[in-house]
Structure formats: structure tokens, C-alpha cells
């Protein structure tokens, strides 16, 4: 169910709305941390929405970097287990690229044997998305089909019109919020909707001008033709690309505590050599180059086969964090030249 009418909310009313919502939910929004925007629990501080999309994707609120899968308590040789229920949260200001990343992960963590902790958080989280009117410099969401306009997957969608935001609902939960807090909204007029379309078209053009853009076909060709040995030679094994990618979801599991303790799940990285190494010492992907190649193949071949969506949403974060000058964006750009 999608609301057919769009509403308008002023900047001041938006703050009032968030204040009201934070009475019942944990509201997460981009705020300034160390002079840059980062998603964190909102406690009334200024929203950092004009900044570029935060480096740490809000996908971490669905797939945390580290979480307790369950606690075990031993009593005379037998165990009892406990789990924490998911938190009721609202994530404000999620961009279209991160929204699509969630959809990709849905296709993996929701498929077949569904991942309960993920599914639980997915159900208990309300997403207020923000269309991207000022895409970052290394972004190429447009060529991956993930932005700058959000298409579904949100409860509410906002577009910054300057004097305030155009608001559209994308789910029953979104409609409910609009109704329950109706006094903060006013009807949008046709000019507002035209303005939204104009701004988003402009954002798209901005990205085109920056081109040429990589496209998936070209990238696949580039994967086949790339000198992975050289790429591996330059890789400084920081794992940053995989830690920062909103689609990457590899994890490791470990126990901490005897006899009582926690089974923890933490983010892992296929860039690390220990990732696929077996206890025997045998490693199916021993070279850094092979691991980088696998990372690309997964995003542009294997994940699409499984989910019908690319494993890359063009957010450009991997290029921002790459230590080794094996910069992903230049790889993508070369893929078009």
C-alpha cells in the first residue's frame, strides 16, 4: 500500500516529529561525530543531512558489526540459552543506495533458511529514507540502478526541497505515522512535486556529467581482464572495502566465556587470508589477488544470480576507504574506458 498523496513537512516540524517518535522508538539519524555525519541515536542534536552519506552505512542497525547471538549458562553440565529481542527503531535519513543494499541482503538473509536475528531487526525497524539530491563525489548509484531516487523499501520517503521536505509513505507503517502525527504535516501542492522531480533529475544529471560511468557489463569484462596479481600486490589487506560495503555481510562466530558466556557474531572479511583457510592449513584462496577477484565476482556475478540484484549499490564507500591505491572507483572507471 502506498499513499498516493504527498505531504510537506517544515524543518522545524520535522524535529518535532522526531521528538515525538523518539518517545516510543529509538530514533537513529545522521548527527555530527568528529566533524562528520554518522548514524547514531538521536537525542535532539542538529541533524547532519547536508553532509555526504555517512561512511558507516546504517545497514549496521540490521547487521551489527558485532552482536550476541545468544548467551549460554551452564548448570551441572546442562545449558540454558537466552537471546535479546530486537530493538524497536526508526532510522531516519537512510539513502537510496543503502536501502537497496538492504533489499539485496533480504535476498540472502531472508532466503531459504532465514536468518532470525536479521529478520527480527528488519521487522522491528521503521525506515525513513531520504532521496539523494546531492550525491557524493565517488558515488555511482545511477549506473547500478540504486539511486539517486529511492524506489520502494521504505516506510516514509523524504525529499529535501530546501524550505522543508516532501514526504511520501511507502508502507502501512508509514501511513500510520503520517496519520498519527498529522498535525506536523501539510498537503503538498503540485509545485512541490514538480520541484522534487526537478531536483532529482538535476542530481542524476550531476552524476552523468561526472561520468563516464561504469556499467555492470563492462565491469564483468574488466573482472575477466584485470591483472589480479598486480591488484593483490598493491592490496594492504586492511579489509576496509568489505567492512564498509553496505552489501557485504560475511560473518564469523565465536564463543567468549567458560562455563557461561556468549556466542558472538562479528563482521568478517573475505579479503583476509584466514577467511577461507581451513584448520588443516589448506586455503582455497591463498593469494590476495584471488580474494579481490572473488570480492568483485560475488558482487557482479554471484549475488545477481542469487538475488536478481547487483551486490554493489554504487555508494562509492570502498573507494573512500581503500588504503592500497587499488582504489575501486578507479577500477570501475577504467572499466568504462
Amino acid at each position: 500500500m502506498t499513499s498516493t498523496t504527498a505531504l510537506f513537512i517544515s524543518r522545524e516540524d520535522l524535529i518535532h516529529l522526531l521528538e515525538e517518535l523518539s518517545g516510543t522508538l529509538e530514533v537513529v539519524a545522521p548527527v555530527l561525530v568528529g566533524d562528520e555525519a554518522a548514524f547514531a541515536t538521536w537525542r535532539g542534536e542538529a541533524l547532519a543531512l547536508d553532509d555526504k552519506n555517512p561512511l558507516a552505512s546504517p545497514v549496521e542497525f540490521f547487521l551489527p558489526k558485532k552482536e550476541v547471538l545468544f548467551r549460554y549458562v551452564q548448570y551441572s553440565g546442562r545449558y540454558t540459552f537466552s537471546e535479546d529481542p530486537p530493538k524497536a527503531r526508526l532510522i531516519f535519513g537512510m539513502r537510496p543506495c543503502d536501502l537497496l543494499a538492504l533489499k539485496v541482503i533480504d535476498g540472502i538473509f531472508g532466503a531459504d533458511l532465514s536468518d532470525l536475528p536479521y529478520a527480527g531487526r528488519r521487522r522491528s525497524t521503521i525506515i525513513v529514507a531520504l532521496n539523494c539530491t546531492s550525491p557524493g563525489e565517488g558515488c555511482f548509484c545511477r549506473s547500478m540502478g540504486s539511486g539517486p531516487v529511492a524506489e520502494g523499501g521504505y516506510d516514509l520517503l523524504l525529499t529535501d526541497l530546501g524550505r522543508g521536505y516532501l514526504v511520501e509513505a511507502g508502507s502501512p507503517a508509514g501511513v500510520y505515522i503520517l496519520r498519527a502525527h498529522h498535525r506536523h504535516f501539510e498537503e503538498a501542492d503540485i509545485e512541490d512535486i514538480k520541484e522534487k522531480e526537478r531536483l532529482l533529475a538535476l542530481a542524476g544529471e550531476k552524476m552523468i556529467k561526472r561520468g563516464p560511468f561504469p556499467n555492470p557489463e563492462k565491469i564483468r569484462e574488466a573482472i575477466d581482464g584485470a591483472d589480479w596479481e598486480e591488484a593483490g600486490r598493491r592490496c594492504l589487506a586492511c579489509g576496509g572495502c568489505s567492512f564498509v560495503c553496505p552489501v557485504c555481510h560475511c560473518f564469523s562466530v565465536l564463543d567468549q566465556g567458560v562455563p557461561d558466556g556468549e556466542r558472538l557474531r562479528c563482521r568478517d572479511s573475505c579479503i583476509l587470508s584466514g577467511f577461507s583457510r581451513m584448520t588443516s592449513g589448506a586455503n582455497p584462496r591463498p593469494d590476495p589477488g584471488e580474494r579481490l577477484r572473488h570480492w568483485y565476482l560475488d558482487k557482479f556475478v554471484y549475488i545477481p544470480e542469487k538475488t536478481g540484484l547487483f551486490g554493489c549499490v554504487g555508494c562509492g564507500r570502498c573507494s573512500r576507504v581503500c588504503l592500497g591505491e587499488a582504489d575501486r572507483w578507479s577500477f570501475f572507471r577504467e572499466a568504462t574506458e
Binding site: 568528529g34 558489526k65 586492511c238 579489509g239 576496509g240 583476509l272 573512500r320 576507504v321
Partner: peptide
Amino acid sequence: VVGASPSPAHPVSRGRLCV
């Protein structure tokens, strides 16, 4: 503490970190 990420505005790390 559940994780760490690089500080983008920092003059040395500039949004990057080692493993």
C-alpha cells in the same frame, strides 16, 4: 563497544584505517 570505523575528517586517517 561493538565496532570501529575510520574518522573521515581526521587529517591522518582521512576515512581510512588498517585492519
